[in-house]
Amino acid sequence: MHIIGLTGGYCAGKNEVAKILSAYGWEVVDVDKLGHAALSLSSLAIKHAFGSHVMNEDGSVDRTKLGQIVFSNAQQMQILESLVHPAMLSLLDREIQRAREQKKEKFCINAALLYRFPQLSLCEAVIEVQAPLFLRVSRAKKRDNLSATRALKRIFSQRELWKLRPRKGAKVFILLNSGKKEQLENKTKKLIEKLSQDLQR
């Protein structure tokens, strides 16, 4: 089974690329969704760490309230990750194992934090989606109803990630997303064709 990674900063457009990869036969696992599941599994620990005000009445975690805390405070983010990431990475390992057992040929790990995950070592290549800052802020306003200030906080909170971009092992392909859907589809299609050729060698 060939495994590739897909990553990119907040509102860069990696999920649009994920949709295109899926259309070309790649099984894409969205680690953000696994994170939501891990959040539920860790809800009691999160309540103890951050207080009952980040919880909904039904006992689930209010992701909006929690996000307001952790995206503006690196120390709080580290606490959250220490609670959630072990469960999330375990769920990812299960997905990889399931795909192997089902003899999937093409598997993609879609994760904003990919460069920090041990599963990066399994990737034969990585697609990193980038986009101009003003477009990312604009998307954050439209998609998540965030102010420019809050959007920039989220974007800048990820700056340390890109220093972890691997220099050895998996080759990293930068995919620039200018905001035009047709251009992104064409660029992704060409990159998929190149990846397919490289992986068959």
Rank of each mutant, 00 (worst) to 15 (best):
K65C: 04
N145T: 10
L164R: 10
A125W: 08
E95A: 13
N56Y: 05
L135D: 13
D93I: 02
W26L: 01
Q75F: 08
I69G: 05
A49M: 11
I96S: 09
G8W: 08
I155C: 01
R154Y: 06
T188L: 07
V129I: 11
F50L: 00
F173R: 05
A125G: 03
H48M: 14
S22G: 12
V84I: 11
K194T: 15
G13D: 07
V70M: 01
Q197E: 14
S196Q: 14
G25R: 04
Y10I: 15
F134D: 15
Y10L: 11
Q119V: 03
G5L: 10
K33C: 09
L161H: 03
L39N: 00
E182F: 03
K103E: 15
M55C: 04
Q200E: 13
Q75T: 13
A140I: 11
S196T: 13
S90F: 12
K187S: 13
E81G: 08
A112P: 01
T188A: 05
V28K: 02
L83N: 06
A37H: 04
L176S: 15
K163L: 15
A151R: 07
D30Q: 09
H2T: 08
L176Q: 15
K180P: 11
K181W: 12
A12N: 06
V137S: 01
H2D: 11
F134P: 11
F107Q: 06
P118E: 10
A38N: 02
L21T: 01
N73F: 06
L184A: 00
Q183A: 09
W26N: 02
L191M: 06
H2Q: 12
E81T: 12
F134S: 14
I155D: 04
N177L: 03
G51C: 04
Y10N: 09
I192V: 11
I174H: 12
H36P: 03
D58N: 14
L114W: 06
E101V: 12
L120R: 06
A170P: 04
E57F: 02
I3R: 00
P132G: 07
P132H: 07
Q200V: 06
L133N: 05
I127R: 00
G51N: 09
M77W: 00
L122M: 13
A18T: 04
F173T: 07
F134L: 13
N15E: 08
E185A: 09
M55P: 04
M55E: 02
R165T: 07
